[in-house]
């Protein structure tokens, strides 16, 4: 009994003080850490690959101006999984080592870029679908799909129509949001 108490005390004494001085001294995460996303607007080609793989619907793509595709990152939803930066063909997305993202201003967690998309040489407009994005064989949850838009009506539970509706919705590709 006494011996085990002595041993326990010894463990504590030997450990000494282990509390880090953080936040008074910086405490950097190791390289390879998946911190807050950074987006290099000059590299992005607007392919939409990132939006198609993001598990948490962070990335919204809008095509509501001619020749311009808007990428909107709602980073408050980001889970720091790093799938978007994995698939980005241009290396436009990367993780910084920044982890102190708490803020009172939600805008601090929003990134928006406008990507100039190649227009038609004759009429000057962006190509209509099918674009590379529409051809992506990835289906499923989209932040810009109707059911996920804030304020969208929640369907009733019982109607078989709900089932039918859910399954007749266009399954494939990225649908763009019309304004």
């Amino acid at each position: 009994m006494l011996l085990s108490k002595l041993r326990e005390a010894l463990i504590c004494v030997q450990a000494g003080r282990v509390t880090l001085p953080y936040p008074y001294a910086p405490h950097d995460p190791p390289p390879g850490f998946r911190g807050k996303l950074a987006l290099d607007a000059d590299r992005c080609i607007g392919c939409g690959g990132c939006a198609a793989v993001c598990p948490s619907g962070v990335i919204l793509i809008r095509d509501d101006k001619p020749m311009v595709r808007t990428l909107h990152f709602a980073l408050a939803r980001c889970t720091y999984c790093g799938r978007c930066s994995d698939v980005c063909p241009e290396g436009a997305l990367s993780h910084t080592l920044q982890f102190e993202t708490a803020t009172n201003t939600i805008d601090d967690l929003v990134m928006t870029i406008d990507v100039f998309m190649g227009p038609c040489q004759r009429c000057g407009r962006c190509f209509p679908p099918p674009t590379a994005m529409d051809q992506l064989p990835i289906r499923g949850f989209r932040m810009d799909s109707e059911c996920c838009r804030v304020g969208a009506d929640m369907p009733a539970p019982d109607a078989a129509a709900t089932w039918a509706a859910a399954h007749s919705a266009p399954p494939g590709g990225v649908r763009t949001l019309t304004p």
């Binding site: 059911c147 929640m154 369907p155 009733a156 539970p157 019982d158 109607a159 078989a160 709900t162 089932w163 859910a166």
Partner: peptide
């Protein structure tokens, strides 16, 4: 009563 969420005709975002 009678609403069973894992039936396929109940929407995932159904709120009673």
């Amino acid at each position: 009563e009678g609403v069973h969420p894992l039936r396929r005709d109940v929407a995932y975002n159904y709120r009673p």
